[in-house]
Design a protein around this nucleic acid. Structure first.
Length: 322
DNA sequence: ACCTTATTCTATCGGAT
DNA sequence: ATCCGGTAGAATAAGGT
């Protein structure tokens, strides 16, 4: 987060170089995957590797315009509000230094008074059980997310989910840890950077079962819509590192669309379908591409590719024969 | 809270180009 | 020799009662 106060020339330069917003799909510079646009914070993350691009497209930082006469005092607000801190980072903490506002040290009587104030300040800020609950849960979310390498936007979502669960009184009777893990699990799925339950079990302090239960519970109560991803979304990130022709990629797309029309897609893993489509398309365009290669690029087993690609061709043939 | 179902993965083997 | 197709059994995730 950059809070530096820029000089006016720097600001002009920045505005001049800001790209006009483009609607076409962008590709990740790291892996060639699609860039998602749908995050509330405005981050754009790679759907494949989770790379976060320009984190603060919507800058919640300080505003640049001075609103009063004092031109040097442009900074009117503090750090951006975040859901990751239990008080959203908005509360004030009494400093630890025994100095007054002018930097002079204060006498011992005032000093002990300040100590008492600090004690009460701390008590009030974490005053009820909800706050303490949140504080602990958000700490856990943070810890697990970094252990699993989940992007910051994902942690924000997890924090938001947890807050909603807390607001809806879904927590009594369930462990904080399980709910926190479940929130993160759901958030990871919504951000297209899913991790297996086993992975969460390894970084969480609770077993897999309570996590699963907690997740089912909150996803039902909160209506967390994790819509199954469209296999088409996976196409480019699988196809581009393989260097197949435009023609093949187009046909892979076509195969998926016809299969979708025939209802062959429901319940199947989208990544597997996309991989199969790439392989099938390579066959149709006579490009040398082994199942093994596609399998590695897509992180899908060769078995799955085999089964799916036969179904895709079947669906394609079925439509072609009518 | 337990059980069921659908899907995918690992490992493996035989056949074909 | 490599690639492909099929199979068995375990694991995983989601749903139902």
């Amino acid at each position: 987060m950059n809070h530096t106060i820029h000089t006016s020339d720097e600001r002009d330069k920045e505005e001049a170089s800001r790209p006009s917003s483009s609607l076409e799909r962008e590709r990740c510079p790291e892996c060639g995957g699609l860039i998602g646009h749908d995050h509330p914070q405005g981050e754009r993350t790679c759907l494949n590797c989770g790379l976060v691009l320009d984190e603060n497209e919507l800058d919640r930082g300080p505003e640049w315009r001075a609103l009063d006469d004092n031109a040097d005092e442009r900074r009117r607000v503090g750090a951006p509000a975040t859901n990751l801190l239990h008080d959203r980072g908005l509360s004030t903490t009494i400093g630890w230094q025994d100095r007054d506002a002018n930097g002079r040290s204060i006498d011992s009587r005032k000093r002990s008074r300040m100590n008492r104030l600090r004690t009460w300040d701390e008590r009030f800020r974490t005053k009820d059980s909800r706050e303490r609950n949140l504080k602990q849960a958000l700490g856990e979310i943070e810890r697990m997310a970094s252990a699993l390498g989940l992007p910051k936007s994902c942690r924000e979502t997890a924090a938001t989910i947890y807050r909603r669960a807390l607001d809806e009184d879904l927590l009594p009777g369930r462990s904080i840890e399980a709910m926190a893990t479940a929130s993160l699990y759901g958030a990871a799925r919504q951000h297209n950077t899913p991790r297996t339950l086993v992975a969460f079990e390894s970084v969480s302090r609770v077993e897999k079962l309570p996590i699963q239960r907690a997740y089912r519970y909150i996803s039902k109560e909160l209506g967390l819509a994790v819509e199954p991803a469209d296999p088409v979304e996976y196409l480019p990130q699988i196809a581009s590192p393989l260097g197949i022709s435009e023609e093949a990629e187009r046909r892979a797309h076509e195969l998926l669309e016809t299969a979708k029309g025939e209802g062959f897609l429901s319940g199947k893993a989208p990544a597997g379908l996309a991989a199969a489509a790439v392989y099938a398309a390579a066959q149709l365009t006579n490009e040398p591409l082994t199942q093994e290669t596609v399998s590695e690029a897509a992180n899908v087993s060769t078995v799955t590719i085999r089964i799916r690609y036969q179904e895709l061709l079947e669906a394609y043939g079925a439509q072609h024969n009518r």
